[in-house]
Write a protein that binds this DNA or RNA. Structure first.
Lengths: 120, 120
DNA sequence: ATACTGTATGCAACTCATTGCATATAGCGA
DNA sequence: TCGCTATATGCAATGAGTTGCATACAGTAT
């Protein structure tokens, strides 16, 4: 079928055309993030985040990696980064997220503090 | 609001994530086309085509031009061509459309016949 | 005027994704 | 083993877009 090209494109576009999923992908294009991180950024219930992550995962757009209790997600489809750049512009620097408890965020907060100290 | 960027992107993506609209835009990126032309290509009722054209028009993605009874539509937003190239690949040559009655199609059919004659 | 053709509009019915929430699972530490 | 935290799943209710169809409008020609 020739119109498989259309169907495939539509599946991809429809996945991006969603507030929560678009924000998730926008965060992930800056690098890995755990669920609690995404939850803190979106300010929505955790099951809701997991639900959208499942949709994106089953579509092959993201992949996951477990590290203890935490599961880190990342982009798995390079088309996504291109599309995001097209519709959102280049990736922006991560805005500070109100209290995310994951170890990675703790590190970031620490290193940021250190940076400030060093510069001063 | 910062998330106006997201909303605007979502509106655009959602407009493309639709079988009829995506095909219409894919045809229009090859150049102008009248409604009867699109109708013949999609093989759907004419009111259905006009309806989707209205959606695209009100979103500013396409513009129109009247010529007698015929109304020719064309892309009006250059982001669309970029996005289509991203998700569909480069524009393909127009496949022959089963009997479209508009003058432009008649011309095309004629010139194609002439071409064949010349080559032979 | 009238008839005809190309295109647009309005609206109801239906479909399907979205969302909320209760609950289940997985790993870790005591 | 038990409790705790991070994450996942299932399912029902809601809601928004899609689709079909009857009809209206706009040019053109006779």
């Amino acid at each position: 079928m020739e119109n498989e090209r259309y169907e495939s494109a539509i599946r991809l576009l429809a996945l991006l055309a969603h507030p929560a999923r678009l924000r998730i992908l926008d965060i992930l294009r800056r690098g890995e993030a755990c669920v609690c991180h995404l939850q803190a950024a979106l300010e929505v219930p955790q099951p809701y985040v997991s639900q959208q992550l499942r949709v994106l995962r089953e579509a092959g757009l993201i992949s996951q990696r477990r590290e203890g209790l935490f599961i880190y997600y990342r982009l798995a489809d390079e088309r996504v980064a291109h599309l995001l750049a097209e519709v959102l512009g280049p990736a922006t620097v991560e805005a500070p997220i109100p209290h995310c408890a994951c170890p990675r965020c703790q590190e970031t907060h620490l290193s940021q503090s250190f940076c400030l100290v060093e510069v001063n």
